[in-house]
């Protein structure tokens, strides 16, 4: 396998023996051969560390569309304080944002700018469809409203209700964090994988 990452041993290094040359193999190492341990520890923790860092500073884009935008503002405010999750930095520029919260109904006229903003965001990027209108068109089943924002952008989390309480939105955000930490790829990657 050409792609398999090289182990430290391949570079002539004996991992922790470097730091503590006299130390013999631990119980843990004896149970689980040293090679496997290195493999498991070294790689997964690094990935997890990156994921952890990403979830703790997932910056949302300010993309308020309708009534839900007011509730989106209130999660930043003093009572709900989204800063606890490292998300207080709402970025006006899509290039600095990681998370697009589609708050409100999307008219067909707004669909093109929305897609443009999404395309301008840097990967990895996530989308939350906030409220019934963004998720499915809500009560507006007519000529002007996009019937669900997932028609134009891949959506990670749907937050129901009209408008969602700030707690509901925060629940959605935390679910997104959990999914990301658990290793679930963002929706656009899943979509690409499904499309082949």
């Amino acid at each position: 396998m050409a792609d398999e990452p090289k182990r430290l041993r391949d570079y002539g290094l004996q991992s922790e023996r470097l730091l503590w040359p006299t130390k013999g193999p631990s119980h843990f190492e004896q149970e689980m051969s040293a090679d496997e341990l290195e493999h498991a520890l070294g790689l997964t923790t690094l990935e997890k560390a990156v994921r952890w860092a990403q979830t703790k500073s997932m910056w949302p884009d300010t993309f308020g569309l309708a009534c839900c935008a007011i509730e989106m503002m209130s999660i930043v405010s003093s009572r709900y304080d989204i800063a606890r999750f490292g998300m207080e930095a709402f970025r006006s520029s899509p290039r600095q944002a990681d998370l697009l919260i589609v708050s409100g109904r999307v008219a067909h006229k707004m669909a093109a700018p929305l897609r443009q903003i999404y395309d301008q965001m840097l990967e990895p990027k996530w989308v939350i469809a906030m409220g019934a209108c963004a998720s499915s068109g809500g009560m507006f089943n007519n000529y002007t409203i996009l019937q669900g924002v997932d028609r134009i952008v891949p959506v990670d989390i749907y937050v129901p209700f009209c408008p969602p309480r700030p707690e509901a939105l925060m629940e959605g955000i935390i679910r997104l964090h959990e999914a990301h930490q658990a290793g679930l790829p963002p929706a656009y990657e899943r979509k690409q994988a499904a499309a082949g």
Partner: peptide
């Protein structure tokens, strides 16, 4: 922050009376 602090008080009253914050 200050304005939204008071806004939450009003939202509490609304929720108490009508069961929902907005709409």
């Amino acid at each position: 922050w200050y304005c939204f602090r008071e806004r939450e008080l009003i939202m509490d009253l609304y929720e108490m009376v009508t069961g929902q914050r907005m709409h």
